[in-house]
Write a protein that binds this DNA or RNA. Sequence first.
DNA 1: AATTCGGGGCC
DNA 2: GGCCCAGAATT
Length: 365
Amino acid sequence: MKATVKADSFASRLLHWFDDHGRHDLPWQHPRSPYRVWLSEVMLQQTQVKTAAPYFERFVAALPSLQALAAAPMDDVLALWSGLGYYSRARNLHRAAQECMSAHAGELPRDLDALVALPGIGRSTAAAILAQAWGDRHAILDGNVKRGLARFHGVDGWPGSPAVERQLWVFAEQHLPHDRLADYTQAQMDLGATICTRARPSCGSCPLSADCAAYLHGRTAELPTRKPAKAVPHRQAWIMWLEDENGRVLLQKRPPVGIWASLWTLPQADDDATVADFLRAHIDGANGDGDVLPPIAHAFSHYKLDLLPRRWRGVALRSAVQDNNHSRWVAPADLATLGIPAPIRRLLEGGRPSHEEFDDPYRLL
DNA sequence: AATTCGGGGCC
DNA sequence: GGCCCAGAATT
């Protein structure tokens, strides 16, 4: 991909697609003015079109111009924003309007740096305003564009990281056409919203798929690279595999709330001393440490749990302790009839290879 | 570089 | 219930 081609085919193909399949009837497109474009761009920060559209209509009906916005009480602006979230956007919008009144003759400046200097306007929003309102030649890099470029160029790494984001800005600049900047800017966002979607993109309808690295290599499901999961707490717990003389195993029913609610599991303890306490109080014949079995790693959504099993055979409950609703001996053949957490069941049923769960909702079917 | 700000859509 | 969405400001 040469950056020096005069009319990047990326842009021309995108524009051609946009003419037939783009969104041409969004509320802020009719009429299109710098103020309305600005307002729409701010409303659409981290907010989907479907959500923002009714707020936009209500907002411009009440405050149809930058001057009206600047003169409005903050409370009125917040009332119009109420329900949209990210309320600093509304406060910044209001402040920026007033700065435009005092510093830019009552209009939005037609200058990237001057726009970025206003509160609530970053580089991408400033570029979108200039391109959409004036047709000026600036690249945007919002979530849609990041996703599209990461796929088209096969860029690995989370787009939120500065290094990847820098690379994506370079690509975005390289693809810029020399005219139709407003349409081109809208086309990128429309493609991302309707074709190059996060999950299950419609590559068969994409004007860029013939040169898309992700499509050609079957990587659309893994690009863009997802945000790295933040470190989850790591816990460990001892579990006691206690068998009586008939080979039955002692199971306990967990409380009705929390992890594995109401399921049957092996007696569990947070530390070594608690294991000893449990055995001393309830079990006859559990001498020493028992057989130490390999740890079982189990991942929950919010923490990881290492289960450390130990096994004792030929033990019995102390006579003072009875079988009851929360504790019972279970024959191996009866395990199938009980609700038992998967890792515990695998342990008890003899360590068949664990089935790797695919928990990724965005995978290709 | 990581966190915060929010409500809704989607799986 | 988590992750993401036309991000920007703050720490």
